[in-house]
Computed example of a mutant assay.
Amino acid sequence: MVEQARADSGTTPTVEAAAPRWTRGRVLAALAVLTAGLLAFHRAVPNSVGRLGSLLEAFLPWLGLVVVVLLGLALLRRSAVALVALLLPVAAWTYLFGGLLLPATEPGAHDLLVVQHNVSDENPDPAGTARALADAEPDLIALQELVPPALSVYERTLAPEYPYHEVRGTVGLWSKHPLTDTRLLDIKPRGITEDWSRGLRTVVHTPHGEIAAYVAHLPSVRVRASGLASARRDESAGLLGRAIAAEKLKTVLLLGDLNSTVDDRGLAPLTSQMNVAERGLAFSFPTTFPLARIDQVMARSASVTHIRTLPATTSDHLPVAARITLG
């Protein structure tokens, strides 16, 4: 009778409906495991072909979106095996980036507030940009892509609150505290023949002691069909890393447009010897839809306890503000 009823109704149980939840979604489960592997072992992705490892690391936090999509599909398929497998990438992403989402700690007694901003050499409103940065009331303001006649506008606008400043080439530092022993920093890669000066080193005399401050703008990278073109940036990062390693002052700050994220192995000469932000994602580029934080603040013998973006200026980068805890 049951057989006849099924025949009369014209319906038969589908393979999908009959499949147990533990066998559905095996492809989704495999993708979840792959995503977890990329997160946990991104250093194992080779850079020998198209610098694929660096390309992955530049956008590594966005693998969290892949996890969200896979979760939605797993729920739609009612796949228990996929849901269990998704615990792996969730754990890996949380380990790598979860701490950045935690609330900022309370300011300490020996904190400095610093601002880093690539102001763009095509900025139509340098005065407005300078005022916006000063409104954050930082101790230090590091700028890149300083070109005449905009440079004189920044100098004039910031002078009342930042009486000390140093500029070398297209990078500069404005400070509420005295600056001494400033010098040009040679981070120019081989093969660049034109005038190119994008680094400086100076000493900031804070109430809490002397700090060696480095301001840098590493070469740009390009994503091409052949992969990530970052050889010049990597070479410049190596030169900068060697300069910081040779620095005799104990406490060092690095502020700059490094054209890379702190997860990118291209910045290993820097991240291997300096502390990066403990809190905050602060994606800074591009302004219209920030995809990555390529504007960085790092420290040696100090902690970058929190980093955040400031409201957009008329640059193609967002400014970032970071709190530095000394000692």
Results as ranks from 00 to 15, higher is better:
residue 240 L to V: 09
residue 325 T to L: 12
residue 14 T to Q: 05
residue 314 T to S: 14
residue 167 V to R: 14
residue 142 A to Y: 09
residue 50 G to T: 07
residue 287 T to V: 15
residue 113 L to I: 13
residue 242 R to C: 07
residue 196 W to A: 04
residue 260 S to H: 02
residue 63 L to H: 06
residue 204 V to M: 08
residue 314 T to Q: 15
residue 37 G to V: 05
residue 103 P to E: 06
residue 149 P to T: 08
residue 215 V to A: 10
residue 61 P to G: 06
residue 170 T to M: 11
residue 20 P to S: 08
residue 43 R to T: 07
residue 305 T to Q: 12
residue 238 G to F: 02
residue 280 G to D: 03
residue 163 P to K: 15
residue 268 A to P: 00
residue 212 A to D: 09
residue 38 L to H: 09
residue 85 A to T: 10
residue 143 L to A: 02
residue 242 R to A: 14
residue 47 N to K: 01
residue 19 A to V: 12
residue 309 T to V: 13
residue 118 N to D: 15
residue 134 A to R: 06
residue 77 R to A: 08
residue 128 G to M: 08
residue 265 R to A: 14
residue 189 P to A: 10
residue 70 L to I: 07
residue 309 T to S: 11
residue 233 R to S: 00
residue 217 H to N: 05
residue 114 V to S: 10
residue 97 F to C: 03
residue 327 G to V: 06
residue 57 E to A: 15
residue 185 L to F: 01
residue 67 V to W: 11
residue 77 R to M: 07
residue 2 V to R: 15
residue 274 M to S: 10
residue 46 P to A: 01
residue 97 F to H: 08
residue 60 L to Q: 03
residue 310 L to Y: 05
residue 277 A to E: 10
residue 213 A to T: 14
residue 303 S to R: 15
residue 105 T to N: 09
residue 45 V to H: 05
residue 238 G to H: 01
residue 311 P to N: 13
residue 325 T to K: 12
residue 100 L to W: 11
residue 100 L to Q: 12
residue 173 L to C: 00
residue 127 A to P: 07
residue 279 R to A: 05
residue 88 L to A: 14
residue 264 D to A: 12
